[in-house]
């Protein structure tokens, strides 16, 4: 599904965020990307997501080489990937429903189908009663669910989550990871960046540990 070969990323010509990363992630796999803050977890996710280009190396997703991805090919790639951001990136001037629907609207899905799928995912995540609320009036855990709903509603092949439990208490953190596990059980590839060791220990999933931009095995 995702193959990275000797990928490096330098900022300002010298600061190495990633250094010679090689990893193969199979379709339907569940991977924890671990490491301390600044280890390069977010950069790795951004490269897969196409919001950063590697300075060196190759990245192949579904047999397609995305090294130096042309600008016009970024939107189709992102429609196949659901990204859950650490700061949620929800729009305050839109309702919960509209925030989630946005992911389908950009794909040109008809409004009737948008409505059906959005209500179904909100119901699945138990936040359907918040559909007409502004995300800003919701608790941190609910906002997290809205962000996950927006990532899942388009039924992506890959889910990337950057510290999805960073703002949650332990109970909500476990609930959130359980959600990702359910999605993964349906065949979606899930990559979660986290530095929460208790979560990693709780789930017997493959783990890739980053330190100073390099994998430590």
């Amino acid at each position: 599904m995702i193959d990275m070969f000797h990928v490096s990323k330098c900022y300002d010509g010298s600061t190495k965020a990633l250094d010679d990363i090689t990893i193969k992630i199979e379709k339907g796999e569940f991977l924890f990307l671990t490491g301390p803050s600044g280890a390069g977890k977010s950069t790795l996710l951004k490269i897969i997501f196409g919001s950063e280009s590697p300075t060196d190396g190759q990245i192949i997703i579904d047999g397609r080489n995305y090294y130096r991805i042309p600008r016009k090919e970024i939107p189709p790639l992102r429609r196949r990937i659901g990204f859950v951001f650490q700061d949620f990136k929800l729009l305050a001037n839109k309702t919960v429903y509209e925030n989630v629907a946005l992911a389908l609207n950009v794909m040109g899905v008809g409004q009737r189908e948008v409505r059906r799928r959005v209500l179904r995912i909100l119901s699945y995540l138990k936040i359907q009663h918040r559909a007409n609320f502004s995300p800003m009036s919701l608790s941190g855990g609910e906002q997290q669910r809205v962000a996950i709903a927006r990532a899942l509603v388009k039924e992506p092949a890959i889910i990337l989550a950057d510290e999805p439990t960073g703002n949650l208490d332990p109970v909500l953190s476990i609930e959130t990871i359980e959600l990702f596990k359910e999605v993964n059980n349906k065949g979606t590839t899930v990559i979660i960046a986290t530095h929460d060791k208790s979560l990693i220990d709780r789930y017997a999933k493959r783990t890739a540990h980053l330190e100073a931009g390099r994998f430590i095995y």
């Binding site: 919001s51 016009k72 939107p75 189709p76 790639l77 992102r78 429609r79 990204f83 951001f85 990136k89 929800l90 729009l91 305050a92 001037n93 839109k94 946005l102 992911a103 950009v106 794909m107 927006r150």
Partner: peptide, 16 residues
Amino acid sequence: RDEIEVMRLVGASDFF
């Protein structure tokens, strides 16, 4: 600007 950023992140084309 936040809306533009989020639209790009969820895969909106320039035209959209």
